[in-house]
């Protein structure tokens, strides 16, 4: 099983990678990509099943917080059954998103405002070095430059400093990060395709 998985990973990966440059492999590449989409959808179900098992175990064993798990399972099965029955495109199912998912997630994001503000205040107490000071100053500058005052904008700040920071200084750093990420992706992918890394459990 281990070598089968290794061979499958390398083989399918190489076919798709070569398909970038060899048009003749496009049909095979498309087929594999379709398989991958199907497996990704299945993997989503696996994740949901795993969630059911975890919380189901909590409920059956009456562990601490099992009442919350029971509530979670109830909501999960209700949403899943109604979703299967009506389809996710049904207005009532979309209402489920509007009424439950959007308010909760949006409120959690709103809480982040308080948390970030608090963290930024505490930063210099925790770590007062050059990078922290530059970080805070830049953040303050960008926040101040993103707002307007009742009497209008602060010209140089909004018209010069903010664009320059964002399009020159921050862009250089961001680009460096993006290139670094791309290089990391390249090396990691190659290690997988060469069988050096087997994150799928091949070892």
């Amino acid at each position: 099983m281990r070598y089968v998985a290794l061979v499958l990973a390398i083989l399918t990966g190489l076919i798709v990678l070569v398909g970038y440059f060899v048009p003749a492999l496009a049909p095979v590449q498309d087929m594999l990509l379709t398989w991958s989409i199907i497996l990704a959808g299945t993997a989503t179900l696996v994740g949901v099943f795993n969630l059911i098992l975890v919380h189901g175990t909590k409920v059956t064993k009456r562990e601490k917080g099992s009442i919350y798990s029971a509530l979670l399972l109830f909501c999960l099965f209700a949403a899943f059954i109604f979703g299967l029955a009506l389809g996710p495109d049904h207005p009532d199912i979309r209402l489920l998103v509007d009424v439950v998912i959007v308010p909760v997630e949006a409120t959690l994001m709103a809480l982040l405002a308080v948390t970030l503000l608090y963290a930024s205040i505490r930063l210099l107490r925790r770590r007062a070095n050059v990078m922290s000071v530059v970080f805070i100053l830049t953040a303050v500058l960008m926040l101040f430059a993103s707002a307007t005052l009742p009497f209008g904008e602060i010209g140089p700040l909004n018209d010069f400093l903010r664009p320059w920071f964002q399009h020159v200084l921050a862009l250089g750093g961001a680009r460096g990060i993006l290139i670094g990420v791309a290089l990391g992706t390249l090396t990691t992918g190659l290690r997988v395709l060469f069988g050096a890394d087997r994150p799928y459990g091949g070892k």
């Binding site: 959808g41 798990s69 299967l84 389809g87 495109d89």
Partner: peptide, 23 residues
Amino acid sequence: VAVHIFVGVSAGYVAAVAWWQAL
């Protein structure tokens, strides 16, 4: 309670979406 409701509804909704719009 709110978080568990959210997780349960999200998981159920995602499972339904995965079934209908992927599988």
